[in-house]
């Protein structure tokens, strides 16, 4: 009996873990891309791009990720766009966290001293060269700790996907509870698994931070 319950729990957790990990990794990649595209768009020379970026950032920061995922999954079909649950989950989480990341990119870029921009002008760099070789290499290490926090937030927020019929680890734990009436065991396991994922993200960010250390940047 106990063995059956444990193997049931193990299978549930592993299934859920797969979804949670896929969501966290894919969502983070999307968030990373959005953060750069819209964070730099926010400081663009072209008004249209600036306005568009601000709209994206404020829309996604100002509304709940919960409602956003809901819209992607349940409302878009009414307009003829039927996203798969996984895609809707990745999009919802990625776009939401990307909006926060965009502000991180913007503030890190703007925190780079004026003297650096002026030196680039004096050395006749183009705007692209200025960002690519001077501003971003200095701003990137500043972004990393906050990106790490955002990634952890994304992982934790991924539990909302149960709403759109994705069986992530929280949903699986909940299902296990309903099946067996056990409450302590599934949530203890879920707690530990989330914490291990958190440690994994922490380790990942530490490694990237070491790589991005200015001492080791090569041209």
């Amino acid at each position: 009996m106990t063995e059956l319950v444990l193997s049931d729990l193990l299978r549930s957790v592993l299934r859920g873990l797969e979804i949670t990990v896929i969501l966290t990794i894919s969502g983070s990649i999307l968030a990373f891309v959005c953060a750069f595209v819209f964070g730099l768009g926010r400081v663009s020379r072209w008004r249209f791009i600036r306005v568009f970026s601000v709209c994206y950032i404020e829309l996604f920061r100002g509304t709940s990720v919960f409602v956003q995922v809901f819209w992607l999954y349940y409302a878009l079909p009414a307009f003829g766009l039927l996203l798969s649950p996984l895609l809707a989950g990745i999009l919802g989480l990625g776009l939401n966290v990307g909006a926060y990341g965009a502000e991180v990119v913007r503030s890190a870029v703007q925190a780079t001293g004026r003297d650096q921009y002026e030196a680039c002008c004096a050395l006749n760099f183009t705007r692209y060269q200025t960002f690519r070789y001077i501003i971003l290499p200095q701003a990137f290490p500043r972004m990393l700790p906050v990106f790490g926090n955002n990634m952890v937030e994304l992982m934790k927020a991924s539990s909302i996907v149960s709403l759109i019929s994705l069986s992530d680890i929280t949903f699986q734990a909940q299902q296990f509870r309903i099946r067996t009436g056990q409450t302590f065991l599934p949530f203890a396991v879920t707690l530990i698994v989330y914490f291990i994922l958190y440690l994994g993200i922490l380790f990942f960010i530490r490694s990237v931070t070491r790589l991005a250390n200015p001492q080791k940047v090569k041209v």
């Binding site: 999954y73 349940y74 009414a78 039927l82």
Partner: peptide, 11 residues
């Protein structure tokens, strides 16, 4: 709570 929205959205 997701049952009826899912039905109406063609899920």
């Amino acid at each position: 709570g997701g049952l009826i929205p899912g039905l109406l959205a063609g899920r």
